[in-house]
Design a protein around this nucleic acid. Structure first.
Lengths: 143, 143
DNA sequence: TGGATTTACATAGGCACCCTATGTATCTTG
DNA sequence: CAAGATACATAGGGTGCCTATGTAAATCCA
């Protein structure tokens, strides 16, 4: 039988393959995850976005800069802290997020229909991934 | 409520974050997936490996070359086809696979224990991912 | 059987993504 | 107010992955 350790390593392996497969077929830039975060969590600073997306702060700085260049987010100064910037979705960014979500989401949904799995199974998979990544205390995650 | 399209796009987003999170903490090179394939499927050629890992043939050529440089696989000529090479795990490769599987697998397992999810949920997540990627007919995948 | 096509793999060139190290400006605190 | 912490940017570099293309061998077929 499969232990949870085996399953854990398979989860990572398959997740990597899924991401690449989707990226190949449907042009899924990394910045979309940031648009998604802003949509879910509201306006945030660069460092908070980096923590939420689990990347380094410089990586998020560059991603936000590119998103701003594309007009999908705007950066305004934080009135309460002159060091910080507040990143916010633009209408164009929200529209782009919708487009990309539809593209990748429909691909997965279509493929799911060809398997024996239910939508509930998909929801379970999403919940497992989210909760694995979710960290109540910032330093508590082992991932 | 969540539609299967929403869930599909969330699956991709979270999968991407998981892969990056694990790579950051546990040095998980892409070649490990190839070791894993060889372990599961036995000796294979470069093109077959590329299809199984869902990457381009040149990408797999480079990955296999690097794995061979590290001594984790060997390439012998295919006796039945002079164009082809057969890639096979070495004992060192099998050991490395075990090490990496333990590292990433234990991280996921430990993190899972801090959530409300069961091992069955994790198994469901893995099965969903695998079946989404599984393609009976080679051109049938929409991912 | 011999030329055209297909197939297996390698090489070249390049882009996307992400990291660490470091610098600068601004808070916060003793 | 000096010292440390924090927010963000820049510099430089590595991995992962792609398309385009080349070479050699296998297959197909007139």
């Amino acid at each position: 039988m499969s232990t949870s350790v085996d399953l854990g390593s398979q989860l990572v392996t398959h997740a990597a393959r899924l991401v690449r497969a989707v990226r190949r077929r449907h042009d899924l830039p990394a910045g979309v995850r940031v648009l998604s975060l802003l949509d879910e969590l509201g306006d945030l600073g660069v460092t908070a976005l980096a923590r939420a997306d689990r990347c380094s702060q410089p990586t998020m700085s560059a991603t936000v800069r590119d998103l701003a260049d594309d007009g999908w987010v705007v950066k305004h100064p934080d009135p309460a802290d002159a060091r910080a910037t507040v990143v916010a979705l633009t209408p164009a960014g929200r529209a782009e997020l919708g487009r990309v979500r539809r593209r990748s989401g429909e691909a997965v949904a279509a493929r799911l229909a060809e398997t024996t799995h239910t939508v509930e199974d998909l929801a379970t998979a999403v919940a497992v991934l989210r909760d694995l990544l979710d960290h109540s205390d910032p330093e508590g995650s082992h991932l």
